[in-house]
Design a protein around this nucleic acid. Structure first.
Lengths: 230, 230
DNA sequence: CGAACATTCAAGAGAGTTCTTGAATGTTCG
DNA sequence: CGAACATTCAAGAACTCTCTTGAATGTTCG
C-alpha cells in the first residue's frame, strides 16, 4: 500500500507547537517530579522542605523544581532567604488527575503495583466526597487526616482529626470507637491513607480511604479549614 | 533550617506507582507521538497511513506507536496483513486536552510559537461549538472541513463542506459567498484550519476557526456524520 | 562588613531516548 | 509453497536526562 505524504503545509509550526506541549509532558515524566507536585498541591513550600518530604538531596530537588518551572508547571518566588514554590494553577491539578485516570484505566504497570503493594479491595473501596459529607452530618463517621502536622496546619477538611501515620499505632485510643473511620492524606494515591486503613483494619476497626486527598477536596470547591486561603 | 525526613513508610510502593504514571507522561513527551495521537483521534489507522500523515519513516512510526502502546495510550490490533492502532479510550483525549490547557496558559514556549507562526488574533478569535450550532441553524454560516478526504469520510460534523487545505485555493468558488466561513480540522492546534482562515481572509472572506476539531466535537457528545460509529 | 544560610550552578558518569539502516517476522494471495 | 506485503526487531551513533559532588550566588542578621 502506498500512501501519499500529506505534510506539505507548515509542518515546522505544528511540530514546534507539539514540541512545546511535549516538553510539558516530559516535565511530568519523572516519579520524583510527580511526587514534588503532589507535595506542592498541599500548599506552597520551600526547596529544603520539599527535598526532605520527598527524600531528595537539596541540589537534586532544586534541579527538579527548576525543570518544573521551566515548563510552567510551578512558579517560584524568592521570599527573603528562601525560594518558595507553588503550583502555577489549578489546571496543573487537572492535568495530573487526567494522567492518573489514564493510568488507572489502561496501564498494566499501575495495576501491577496496586496488586503488589496494596490490597486490591482497599484500592477500590474508597468513599466519595458526597458520601463522606452525608455521614459526617449524621455523625456516623470519624474523619482522619494522616498527614504530618505541618500539612494539616496548612489546610484540612473541616472536622478532621489529625493523627500522622507515624503516630497512629500509639494514638489509636484517640479515635472514637464504634463509628466508621475514613482516612485521607495527600491525594488518591498517597500511601499514607492506604497504610492507615490497613493498620486500622488489623485492629478491628471499620476503616476506609477517602477517594481523593486535600487537593482534590479543595479543587472540588469544598470548604477547607485551618490556613489562610491560597 | 533543618527538616526531618518524613518518608519513613512504604516509599518504594509510592515511587513505583509514580514511576508508572511518569512513564505514561513520557509517552506524551515527544512531538511526533503527540502528532500520532492527534491523527488517531480522527479514527483508527494503520502504521503506514500514520507514518505518511506525520512524515515519519514506517519503522520510526512503528517504534513510536509501540511506545504509546507500552504505556497504554493506544491499542493495536492485527487485522489481516495490517496492524490497526486506535486510542485506548476517551480519557486519552481528556489527558491531551489537559496538557494543552496547561500549555496554553503557562508555557512561554507555546505563546512564542503562536506569536511567531500564527496571527495572534486568529488564535484567540475562535468560534465555540454552541455558537456554531446556532448560526448553522440560522443559515448564517458555511462550515468548512479542511482535512484530507479520507479523514472526512471517517467522520465529520454534519453539514460540513469538505475542501482539503491543499485544494482550497483552487476551489474557492465552491464556498457560498456572503455567509461567514468557519473552518475546522483535527483539533484546536491543527495548522490546517489556521492556514485556511488566513487564506480565506486574504481573499476578503469573513472567516474564523472553530474552537476544536472533530475529536473534540465527538467528545462533547455531538452527532458525527459519515462513518460507522467507533 | 563578614558569617550563616538557602538555593543554584557546573561538570561529569551512567542511563535512557531517538533516529537510521537493514534484516527478520508474520500474513495473505496466487 | 513462495512471492509480496505490512510491520517489527536489532544494533549503533548522537543526543538528552538524572544524580552526585563541590563550588558559587544571593540574602539576612549580628
Amino acid at each position: 500500500m502506498f500512501v501519499k505524504a500529506e505534510w506539505s503545509c507548515n509542518l515546522s509550526a505544528k511540530l514546534d507547537l507539539l514540541a512545546a506541549f511535549a516538553e510539558i509532558a516530559r516535565g511530568l515524566g519523572n516519579a520524583h517530579r510527580l511526587d514534588l507536585l503532589e507535595h506542592l498541591a498541599q500548599g506552597e513550600k520551600g526547596v529544603e522542605t520539599l527535598a526532605a518530604k520527598s527524600g531528595l538531596t537539596v541540589a537534586n530537588a532544586s534541579q527538579h523544581l527548576q525543570a518544573l518551572r521551566r515548563v510552567g508547571l510551578v512558579v517560584g518566588e524568592r521570599r527573603g532567604k528562601q525560594v518558595v514554590y507553588r503550583l502555577s494553577g489549578d489546571d496543573v491539578l487537572d492535568l495530573v488527575a487526567a494522567l492518573r485516570t489514564v493510568g488507572e484505566r489502561h496501564a498494566d504497570s499501575v495495576k501491577a503495583v496496586v496488586r503488589d503493594y496494596f490490597n486490591e479491595r482497599d484500592a477500590l473501596d474508597a468513599v466519595a466526597f458526597q458520601v463522606l459529607e452525608q455521614r459526617l452530618r449524621d455523625g456516623l463517621v470519624t474523619l482522619l487526616d494522616v498527614r504530618p502536622p505541618d500539612e494539616f496546619a496548612d489546610g484540612h477538611v473541616p472536622g478532621a482529626l489529625n493523627i500522622p501515620l507515624a503516630d497512629l499505632k500509639a494514638r489509636l485510643a484517640e479515635i472514637p470507637s464504634g463509628a466508621e473511620v475514613v482516612a485521607y492524606c495527600r491525594g488518591p494515591w498517597c500511601v499514607l491513607a492506604f497504610e492507615a486503613v490497613a493498620l486500622l483494619r488489623q485492629t478491628g476497626r471499620d476503616a476506609k480511604r477517602l477517594d481523593g486527598g486535600l487537593p482534590e477536596w479543595r479543587r472540588a470547591g469544598r470548604q477547607v479549614a485551618g490556613p489562610p486561603a491560597i
